[in-house]
């Protein structure tokens, strides 16, 4: 399967800190790629570099063959990338409705698509006119997801969506991701929860110290406990 997104020798500096040291990996089209690794490995920096929020100081990033590492963040988004940041970054002062209006960049929101999203996240309908700042953490994550789904995107970048959320909310997010995946979306997902990663991921990249130290299929990593120990310092048995 062809790769929609490729990173070649990507380096990122933040101030005087050298965070990414030549990141190399690809995201196959129509598949869900998990980016795993310990805290501080460079996963979030990788997503932010792809979005242009931090500039790559070296290397090449291609989306569908087109170089994007020199584009501005709005142009990268317009190239078809949806981004769900770790902080969720919902606009607290705006209502749920207004948050989604902004995310629907191309014009009016598609009611069918909106109903599809409400199917996964019913609280968004209930709190349609409430300010996003008044939502719970889980509801904010639902809104952040909904924002990335309100229009079809070529690629979704999702950063630790289950962090700090209740199991019921995590379940709703996983159901949503599975459905989005079933519809053929290409997803790059950073996740700390290995169970979630195993459930959703097709392929995987493991990062450490600003490099991708392992690439392969999720099934192969999930089946090899020694490899998990070596790469991540965990096993499924101890991380449930």
């Amino acid at each position: 399967m062809s790769e929609l997104l490729t990173l070649s020798g990507v380096e990122t500096h933040i101030g005087r800190y050298h965070i990414l040291h030549g990141v190399e990996f690809g995201v196959p089209e129509g598949r869900t790629t998990m980016l795993l690794g310990r805290n501080g490995a460079g996963k979030t920096t990788t997503l932010r570099t792809i979005m242009g929020l931090w500039r790559a100081s070296a290397g090449v990033i291609r989306l569908g063959g087109q170089r994007i590492e020199t584009l501005s963040t709005p142009d990268i988004a317009r190239a078809g990338i949806g981004y769900v940041p770790e902080t969720m970054a919902v606009f607290s002062d705006l209502t749920v409705k207004e948050n989604l209006i902004l995310a629907a960049r191309e014009g009016e929101m598609d009611q069918t698509r909106l109903d599809w999203i409400f199917g996964f996240f019913p609280p968004l309908r209930k709190f349609w006119l409430s300010r996003a700042g008044t939502l719970s953490g889980g509801q904010k994550q639902m809104l952040s997801f909904a924002r990335s789904l309100i229009e079809p995107r070529r690629l979704l970048l999702i950063d630790e969506p289950t962090k700090g959320l209740a199991p019921a909310i995590i379940g709703a997010l996983i159901d949503c991701l599975k459905e989005v995946k079933r519809r053929g979306a290409t997803i790059l997902l950073v996740e700390q929860n290995f169970r979630v990663a195993q459930e959703i991921g097709d392929t995987v990249g493991v990062m450490d110290n600003g490099r991708v130290i392992h690439s392969g299929t999720m099934a192969a990593l999930a089946a090899d406990e020694q490899l998990q120990h070596r790469l991540l310092g965990l096993s499924l048995d101890t991380h449930q």
Binding site: L53, S72, T73, A89, L94, A103
Partner: peptide, 23 residues
């Protein structure tokens, strides 16, 4: 208007507004 929403959103989180594709 969408411009008004963008202004209000941009005050809160410029980075996220740009990540949605707006200059």
């Amino acid at each position: 208007t969408k411009i008004g929403l963008l202004i209000r959103a941009g005050v809160e989180n410029t980075e996220m507004v740009e990540a949605l594709g707006y200059r």
